[in-house]
Amino acid sequence: MVHRSLLLLIIALAFPQIAQSLYSPALGDIGRQFNVGAQAASQFMSVYFLAFAAGVVVWGRLCDRIGRRPTMLAGLAMYVVATFSGLWVSSFSALLLAQMLAAFGAAVGSVVTQTVLRDRFNGAELAKVFSLMGIALAASPAIGLFSGASLVQALGYRGALGALLLLAMLLWLWCWCALAETRPAPPVPVGLLETLTRMLRDLRIWRSALLIASFNIALFSYYSLAPFMFERLGADPAWFGYSGVLLALGSGSGAWLNKFLLSNGFKPSQLIRLASGTALLGGMGVWLLHNHVAFVLPMLLVVLAFGMAIPNILGSALAEYADRLGTAGALLGLMYYVLIGLGLILAGWFQALGATLMMCAAVAWLLAIRAEANSSRVRQH
């Protein structure tokens, strides 16, 4: 029963990323169908994350108010309605609005799943569970990009939307039948403003949010910029979808390597620093090879770093907020998803993948170095 429940949580956590990456190959077709340029089409990713950030706050707050299960069902229902609407719109603005509402609903998969995991696990056990989740998250872009490329090639962007609609409906039914409630009973009253004030004053929370944002901007800038890079280089658009399989191997390797190194005594802070340096090397490689399709190869280092870093950051980010996991998770999510959305807006404007990757990796490396220095000072005292 535990294994079945973990499988459901893995798929629920991966769903927002599958939804985003499956939609990514449709950006070129959307640009052509609605007669908008690469910069406008790329903004789908930034809009997705900004709406996602708002959704994280609402669903995370509802987690503590009405429970984990009803919140998950409500968010997925909203995604279904928004995606169905997107199939019938006739203007770019209306499609963008449908995407915003869908992203708002999809956020429930991230915040509710993380809250349920934090309800059930803690400490080193939680870090290992997040590593397992990281392996699943590594596979989701491959599923999304490969499936999305095939669907868009056969049916256009509506093919991708139709697949997402079906997937969301099946996930809703599974949650209805199998998702158990894990909210403590009776729930502890938690003030949103009080929690927000406390978190805004917590430098560790800001560091975690910036680290999560840096690695995610690096990953998702590939999904928003690479379709147009392949097009500029004269490559078959389907190759963008196939590249997802290669990148998933890199991200999965990073998550597996993280789990292995944790089991062998490495500290999370050491692994975050190692991941930051690896991402910086990968960004430099992409920058050097930006005029050749081989730029995908150094991108492997970036996704490997993502798979290694994210479980460690998420596993320890809310250790001091155990009495308010839904609300604190929502506010942390708001912080890093707003940062991701703003970062992707800038990436879309500049259309420079290599420079974006190097900037993100440099920020992450500096934050990791600072965190480790602070930890050393605390241990000495």
Rank of each mutant, 00 (worst) to 15 (best):
F92V: 04
V112H: 00
G86V: 14
R207I: 04
S208I: 09
T71Y: 03
T115E: 02
L165Y: 08
Q99K: 09
T182A: 00
G156I: 05
K128N: 07
L196R: 09
Q114L: 13
P189F: 10
T71W: 07
Q99D: 07
P186L: 05
A178C: 10
F84N: 09
G75R: 01
L193V: 14
T113M: 06
G144K: 05
R183N: 00
A154N: 10
G109M: 05
R183D: 01
L145C: 09
T83S: 13
C175V: 03
L193I: 12
F121A: 00
A138R: 07
T115Q: 02
A98F: 02
S140I: 09
A107M: 08
L76M: 09
S150A: 14
W176Y: 14
A94F: 08
L161C: 09
C177I: 13
L167H: 08
A77T: 12
V190H: 10
L200N: 06
A142Q: 02
L151I: 15
A107D: 00
V190L: 08
G191L: 02
R204S: 09
I135W: 01
W206L: 05
P187N: 01
L132R: 12
L126G: 00
G148N: 13
F84V: 15
V89K: 01
E194R: 15
V190S: 10
M133R: 01
S93P: 00
A185K: 14
L76E: 08
L173H: 08
Y79L: 15
R207S: 11
W172S: 02
W176R: 15
S110C: 04
A102P: 06
F130V: 05
L161M: 15
V89W: 02
A74Y: 11
S131H: 01
I143L: 14
A82E: 09
S131G: 15
S85Q: 12
T197Y: 06
V81F: 06
W174D: 12
L73T: 10
A136M: 14
V112E: 02
G159A: 08
F84P: 12
G86R: 06
L179Y: 06
S90T: 13
Q114I: 09
R198T: 13
A124G: 05
L87E: 01
L193F: 15
P70R: 05
R120E: 04
G156D: 04
F84L: 15
Q99V: 15
V116H: 02
D119K: 06
F146W: 15
T113S: 11
A102Y: 11
L87R: 05
C177M: 15
S93M: 13
M72Q: 13
P187T: 01
L95S: 10
K128R: 12
G86M: 10
A77N: 07
A102T: 13
Q153G: 15
G134N: 01
A106G: 04
Q153F: 11
G86H: 03
V80H: 12
V80M: 11
S131A: 13
R158M: 10
T115K: 03
A82F: 09
V152Q: 01
E125F: 00
P141E: 00
A107I: 11
L95W: 06
R204E: 12
T71F: 04
F104R: 08
A139Q: 04
